Simulated scan of single mutants.
Amino acid sequence: MSKPFDLELFLAGVLTGSYVTRQRHLRQARIIQTEIAKRWHRETPWLWQRKHVTWFLEHRLNRRSNATRYYYLLTARLLARRLERPWVFKCKAKI
Score class of each variant (00 low, 15 high):
Arg42Lys: 09
His25Leu: 09
Leu15Cys: 03
Leu26Asp: 05
Thr44Arg: 09
Thr44Gln: 10
Glu35Met: 10
Ala12Gly: 03
His41Arg: 12
Ala37Cys: 07
Thr44Met: 07
Thr21Asn: 12
Ala29Ile: 08
Phe10Leu: 11
His25Val: 00
Ala29Met: 01
Ala29Ser: 12
Glu43Gly: 05
Thr44His: 07
Arg27Trp: 14
Trp46Ser: 09
Arg42Phe: 03
Val14Ala: 08
Arg30Thr: 02
Thr21Met: 13
Gln28Ser: 12
Arg39Ser: 01
Glu35Leu: 12
Thr34Asp: 13
Leu11Thr: 05
Lys38Tyr: 11
Thr21Arg: 14
Gln28Lys: 12
His41Tyr: 00
Gln28Leu: 10
Trp40Tyr: 14
His41Leu: 09
Arg24Val: 00
Lys38Asp: 06
Thr21Ile: 13
Arg27His: 12
Thr44Ser: 09
Val14Phe: 06
Glu8Met: 12
Thr44Asp: 08
Pro45Asp: 01
Leu15Ser: 06
Ile31Asp: 09
Arg39Phe: 00
Gly13Leu: 14
Arg27Ala: 14
Gly17Gln: 08
Arg27Met: 13
Arg24Met: 00
Thr21Cys: 11
His41Cys: 05
Lys38His: 12
Arg22Trp: 09
Thr16Trp: 10
Arg22Asp: 05
Ser18Ala: 14
Gln28Ala: 10
Glu35Gly: 03
Arg24Cys: 04
Ile32Gln: 05
Ser18Glu: 14
Trp46Cys: 03
His25Pro: 03
Arg30Ala: 00
Trp40Arg: 02
Ala37Trp: 03
Gln33Gly: 01
Trp40Gln: 04
Trp40Met: 04
Glu8Gly: 15
Glu8Arg: 15
Ala12Cys: 06
Leu15Ala: 08
Gly17Ile: 11
Glu35Phe: 07
Thr44Cys: 03
Thr44Gly: 02
Leu26Ala: 05
Arg39Glu: 12
Ala12His: 11
Tyr19Lys: 12
Leu26Ile: 07
Lys38Glu: 11
Ala12Tyr: 02
Gly17Phe: 11
Ser18Gln: 13
His25Ile: 06
Ala29Arg: 02
Arg42Asp: 00
Ala12Met: 06
His41Trp: 00
Arg39Gly: 01
Ile36Trp: 01
Arg42Trp: 03
Val20Gly: 11
Leu11Lys: 09
Ile31Leu: 14
Thr21Tyr: 10
Thr16Arg: 15
Gly13Lys: 15
Thr34Arg: 14
Pro45Gly: 04
Leu9Asp: 10
Phe10Arg: 05
Arg30Tyr: 01
Arg39His: 10
Gly13Tyr: 03
Gln33Ile: 05
Ala29Asn: 06
Gln33Glu: 08
Tyr19Leu: 09
Ile36Ala: 02
His25Lys: 14
Ala37Glu: 09
Glu8Lys: 15
Thr34Ala: 13
Gln23Asn: 13
Lys38Gly: 01
Ile32Val: 10
Ser18Tyr: 11
Arg22Gly: 07
Trp40Ile: 01
Leu15His: 03
His41Glu: 13
Ala29Gly: 07
Ser18Lys: 12
Tyr19Thr: 12
Gly17Val: 11
Glu43Val: 08
Gln28Val: 13
Arg30Lys: 07
Arg22Phe: 08
Arg22Ala: 10
Leu9Trp: 06
Ile32Ser: 02
Leu47Pro: 00
Leu9Ile: 05
Arg39Met: 08
Ala37Met: 04
Ile32Arg: 03
Arg27Cys: 10
Gln23Phe: 11
Val20His: 12
Leu47Tyr: 04
Leu15Val: 04
Glu35Ile: 08
Glu8His: 14
Gly17Leu: 12
